[in-house]
Design a protein around this nucleic acid. Structure first.
Lengths: 207, 207
DNA sequence: TTGACAACATACCAATTGGTACGTAACGTA
DNA sequence: TACGTTACGTACCAATTGGTATGTTGTCAA
């Protein structure tokens, strides 16, 4: 017998329950992919029931969309864009964040890859709603990096010849590539192998 | 009424049938992911029935494993490793293949990403059998590039200071990153944005 | 205090899932 | 040409899927 601790929910807070569902759904989808997770799986890991979930999200797809808009997109800003502003030299910021968030990350966590990349590779060709939302999240990331590089140019940290748009695309590409290879490889030394050439490249952008 | 052209199969050729199933399964999985495709979906697109499929592949997972071993792995060799040998300078070969197979590829095809990367991002954390096979396919790719870079060093095309293992990791990472971003972005100019910096980096490896 | 509405819980459902049991017939061998 | 093997076809199945219809009860305005 499994301990059934379901009817404990007494308080009724729409936003709080929404966040609880999104939190559980994010973790499950992060670990087992969107199509690999069922609504029942998510409900089981919650203190709620199916009724609560479908009250907030009319369909499973709507839940997936909310995952992109309300969890993943803010996470990109918080982890990869905003922290860079604190660095005088954006390249320093980018390298620092990669070291902190990927290099020093728990391998058990890294095995699940990048939340954005996971959903993008799985759902972009399958569903247009996902495609649009994942696309704008990705564009947000790229343009955020581009803005930081422009600032670096303006303030003299980055070379005049650098093409911010190209470099931003390449940098985000490297992030997703890093996550992807580390996910598939299960090799602790792989990060350094990829980080060294990436660092070399990024340093060529500096004055 | 849908035209039912099922009982046309008269010849009995185990290997031929296997290849037909693998071919259909590869295309379906490539377009809609492994978990997004059902056995019935695959059977429908075949001239065969469920009995034939389960005669060859005891489970759906076995079919997926065969996809990695018998379709994707040979494809990596054929597209990304073997062609490079024809070039005196491996960097020329790598750039040429990227231009041909990604730069000049039909956007409608690119939207489905990289077959290896797709399965890796989706199935590596979910199933150990997938993880092992995808890992060896990825290692094959990386070590194949590494071998070519070593040859380039030996024959004087590549700088002495280049670390072949690091560079090989970085190059394959860039491939998967390229595929991944192009899949999510749906922007024709994105390839050039990423290709230019990648080319710049690769040229720094040359003498 | 009360009533009404919204935030949940419960009990269901048709369709789809991977898989199986068993039948049939094409093929090599004797 | 008879025969056994096995490559396939057919008909089914229990479990799971996303989703719904209908309760029940917390919460807040009046």
């Amino acid at each position: 017998m499994v301990a059934k601790t379901k009817p404990v929910k007494r308080t009724r807070d729409l936003e709080k329950t929404r966040k609880e569902i999104l939190s559980v759904a994010f973790n499950e989808v992060f670990r087992r992919s969107f199509q690999g997770v069922s609504i029942d799986d998510i409900v089981k890991k919650t203190q709620l029931t199916k009724g609560a979930l479908f009250h907030q999200f009319p369909t499973k797809l709507d839940l997936g969309y909310a995952l992109v808009d309300e969890v993943i997109q803010p996470m990109i800003l918080e982890r990869w864009i905003d922290p860079i502003e604190a660095f005088e030299n954006p390249v320093d910021g980018i390298l620092h964040q990669i070291e902190e968030l990927i290099g020093k990350a728990d391998p058990r966590y890294l095995r699940y890859g990048c939340p954005l990349n996971n959903l993008m590779q799985e759902m972009a060709p399958v569903d247009a709603g996902f495609r649009d939302r994942l696309q704008s999240a990705l564009r947000l990331w790229i343009s955020g990096v581009e803005v930081q590089l422009r600032r670096g140019k303006r303030e003299g940290q980055i070379k005049k010849e650098v093409h911010p748009k190209d470099a931003a695309h390449f940098i985000v590409m490297a992030h997703e590539g890093l996550y992807g290879i580390l996910k598939g490889l299960d090799d602790p030394s792989a990060f350094k192998s990829m980080y060294r050439p990436l660092k070399t490249y990024l340093r060529t952008l500096e004055n």
